[in-house]
Design a protein around this nucleic acid. Structure first.
Lengths: 242, 242
DNA sequence: CGCATCCTTGATTTCATTCAAGGATTGTGG
DNA sequence: CCACAATCCTTGAATGAAATCAAGGATGCG
């Protein structure tokens, strides 16, 4: 099985063999979480950075009256809490959406690696910036798009992100969400998500059965979504150039 | 007039006199933008990092059909585009909401300062993490709260942020937004923002006249908003400790 | 095979948008 | 300093989108 963490970071920069080795050694401490289990809970500050190696996790916030909102997905190669590298605080929880294999990386180790290898440092920077760009897009997605557009947009985003780590087959991929999860992600009720999905299916844009999502017409779907993938790409800014 | 950039960063770490001097020198290149003028436009990649010294700016995204969403406010001391330090890409625009004084900081200069002073490096880290935490909160705010709660939450957040740079008078501050801006921020129509504000006023929670917002009962307002300010604070993670 | 979870559907209600227009405030130029 | 325009705020009425309520059906898991 490929090392998705290395693959993901290698997507931002060009890692040397040494860099890859360093990263693999950093990610030795691996744990399984079963579906629906909390990997990180808002109450307890972790001392390590978690990265998903296999399966899906989500970051979510919960109000004291029970309402919940999913603020991010962590797919293979994604970090769940990079902020821990430089801060002691975390203000969301992380939950396994499938059985998930997570590497727990010593934050001191990451800082050392960043000091020793400028390329690794840059990879972490770009990864953090990419996460922030996605978060901004999600804010706007919920804030200004209709139900149909929101869901279409999310589906488009994920296909690109899954492609980046080689987890797609053409325009189809495993989307291990319930419709309730999807609702908590895009700010819609489960019932309305269901109807909107039927609408997208009836328009011949997608198929989605048994966790398997297939985009029938990416071009049309991204037009429906007003999807512009540029926020998912980050060009390397050569440190020597101003 | 205080140097809000220094004041803001000093909120995260303890800057030495030298550090402060370095930052002031970095921020020499100052420009005014008039109200409603774009300081950064999505199309053109800036080569410098912009920081607001005076006035308000907002970061926004716009769809090709004209729909607009404000994804962040930049108040005095805030950076508008820290991502430029390490990446060439930006996928949103920045617009002055009032006449605004912006320092344009050479990104190479920032990287040098971060290398020379670990404290400055840490300040930038924490600032970026803080911005990301706010963005996550905004995503959840729009996604799971009602109109009343959303607006209340935003008002609570801003009072804390304004306090951090000393721009409040008790629980009141200058909020230089139109109701249309507010709608584009929390994902509501102008008309509904208006009615919701009247509701908050009628409940004795706030006053808002002529750009001047006054929170009459912060305790109650934050309960209405389900506001928990912890996402706005970031404790220094001592680099020597694991 | 049976239970639990998830998906689907219909009916109803609620929240928010849209449309339209009048009033207040602010800013500008004469 | 006043007049006028532009922007912004406010209100009412009608429409529409999404939530809620309720229940049946499918799917998958033990």
């Amino acid at each position: 099985m490929p090392h998705y963490l290395v693959r993901k970071l290698n997507h931002w920069v060009c890692l040397s063999a040494d860099d890859k080795q360093i990263l693999k050694e950093l990610a030795r401490d691996v744990t399984w979480f079963r579906s629906n289990q909390d990997a990180i809970n808002e109450g307890i500050t972790p001392r390590y950075v978690s990265a998903v190696l296999e399966g899906w996790a989500c970051c979510y916030k919960q109000l004291n009256d029970g309402r919940r909102h999913i603020i991010a997905y962590s797919i293979p190669g994604d970090f769940c809490n990079t902020s821990i590298i430089f801060s002691n605080d975390i203000n969301y929880s992380v939950r396994a959406m499938t059985p998930v294999r997570i590497a727990r990386i010593d934050r001191q180790g990451i800082r050392c690696a960043m000091e020793r290898s400028p390329v690794i440092a840059h990879a972490f920077w770009l990864d953090i910036l990419a996460t922030a760009a996605i978060q901004r897009e999600w804010t706007a997605n919920i804030g200004l798009r209709t139900a149909r557009e929101r869901i279409a947009h999310l589906i488009c985003e994920i296909v690109i992100r899954m492609q980046a780590v080689g987890l797609t087959d053409q325009d189809s991929y495993t989307l291990p969400l319930t419709q309730e999860d999807l609702g908590e992600t895009v700010g819609l009720s489960t019932v309305h998500v269901n109807r909107t999905l039927q609408d997208l299916r009836a328009s011949g844009l997608i198929e989605w059965k048994r966790r398997h999502l297939n985009i029938l017409n990416f071009q049309n779907l991204s037009e429906v979504a007003h999807f512009d993938d540029s926020y998912l790409y980050h060009s390397y800014n050569n440190l020597d150039i101003n």
